[in-house]
């Protein structure tokens, strides 16, 4: 069953005289419970696409649906509510609020949504336990390693049981061991906790964990592969380099 789909989604930067298209006429359907990786070279528009899927960026034309809601029809408040209840975000940088503890960082979407603090913090503890950080709840981000910080960010994305988790290069800033930890955790989110996940990456080893990979070039989907079981990283890498060269 489709959970997110787009219709002729287009994003153009710059002004009329010098338009710089970032995303061009993208028609994409994300199935419920699927792990979708968006790949492509730098500047291919993959992050822009992800931001539009999550209501962070407004399309120049075209539409995005989350189930039956068309995002561009929503006002800022409704969109904000959507972000804290229906979407979960994981970014590459600046992912956590430095003055809050891990527990509070995770609880923030709930608190912003008006869940009483005690209950929000309890749910945050549960989410942190799921990502293996039960013993780090009272730590500040600066007291955690990079991998741990991304797991806190993942817990924050999970805590609201959103319709879709959107991750923008979540491993881009991590060493390979932490990177593996985080990707495996993402995989578990899909397999065990039945989350839908859309992930942007240029790392084929990361993309290899996905169920489906789409390739973006110059803002257009150039390839859409459904992988059977665990994907083959080498094969993906080869495909990516071919695309860059062509």
């Amino acid at each position: 069953m489709s959970i997110v789909h787009t219709e002729s989604l287009t994003k153009v930067y710059g002004d009329v005289s010098q338009p710089i298209p970032a995303v061009r006429d993208v028609n994409l359907t994300v199935e419920e419970g699927e792990f979708l990786a968006i790949m492509g070279p730098s500047g291919s528009g993959k992050s822009t696409l992800l931001y539009m899927l999550g209501g962070l960026d407004k399309p120049t034309s075209g539409k995005v649906w989350l189930r039956d809601s068309e995002l561009s029809a929503l006002n800022d408040d409704a969109l904000s509510r959507m972000r804290r209840t229906e979407f979960g975000f994981v970014f590459q940088f600046f992912n956590l609020i430095p003055v809050l503890t891990a527990q509070e960082n995770v609880a923030i979407p709930l608190i912003l949504d008006g869940v009483p603090r005690a209950r929000a913090l309890k749910q945050a503890d549960d989410a942190l336990a799921r990502v293996g950080l039960a013993d780090r709840t009272m730590h500040r981000p600066t007291e955690l390693s990079g991998g741990q910080q991304q797991r806190v960010a993942l817990a924050r994305a999970l805590v609201t049981t959103p319709a879709v988790i959107l991750a923008d290069e979540p491993t881009g800033n991590l060493d390979s061991r932490s990177s593996d930890d985080v990707v495996q955790m993402l995989r578990r989110a899909v397999d065990e906790w039945k989350q839908t996940l859309v992930l942007v990456t240029h790392d084929s080893r990361v993309a290899a964990f996905a169920d489906r990979i789409i390739f973006l070039k110059d803002g257009k989907i150039v390839d859409d592969n459904r992988l059977k079981g665990r994907g083959n990283a080498d094969q993906i890498r080869e495909q990516l380099s071919k695309m860059v060269l062509s």
Partner: peptide, 14 residues
């Protein structure tokens, strides 16, 4: 960045 993050995870303007 902090403010952007808060907005991304669903904080309203208000």
């Amino acid at each position: 960045h902090d403010l952007g993050m808060l907005r991304a995870v669903g904080a309203t303007r208000r």
